[in-house]
Design a protein around this nucleic acid. Sequence first.
DNA 1: CCAAAGATCGTCT
DNA 2: GACGATCTTTGGA
Length: 220
Amino acid sequence: MNHPSDTIGVESWLKAHPPLPASFFRRPTLELAQALLGKIVVHIAPEGVAAGRIVETEAYLGPHDKAAHSYGGRMTPRTRIMYGPPGYSYVYKIYGMYDCLNVTAGPEGEPQAVLIRALEPVFGETLMHERRRRPKQRKLLTAGPGRLTQALGITTAHYGLPLFVPPLYIACGDDVPPERIVRGKRIGIDYAEEARDYLWRFWIHDHPFVSVLPKQNRSV
DNA sequence: CCAAAGATCGTCT
DNA sequence: GACGATCTTTGGA
């Protein structure tokens, strides 16, 4: 299967989408979760380059957030990277079979992160299609945290990498204006008591690659 | 279209 | 030893 984006030279595409600076990540986590919308996740792998625009994120705010892996200040080999500086990859395995990509956030010592929940394919779609075992619906390539990591070839082997240098980085893309950002409750954390109601999920309004469309929406 | 169930293993208790 | 910041498949309406 061929795709128009594959005909663009890899080198010229990469040159047009350089990494954002480390300073980009240095802002309050709820702001970062929104600032990441429209930016592009790029992975340069041996088998090729794949990239997607971020259209959905969730913020996890550390020791006081019952839905966060770092709730209560838990410090384990898995959560360690969240205690470091912002802009690093926190990749974890979920349900034994899927990998989820997070961007560490907040200043050093504050174990916070932003989960990347959905992308819109922008480069290397043929490669993504292969990695995803050729789904029938294009949306199934990258709509969902487990799907997008599989499409981009991201695994727990990429744990702890800086996301402002190759081979895995966040590239400049669009700034999404506030009026196009919608917020709602986070997905799959019903056990988290009061934290289940926090509106810490953000997505681009009406975007076709958003993973789940909830009933209770609210503009930012 | 939706709900239910199974898959499968790293991580923490 | 239990469970999950998920996804796929299946079966019924």
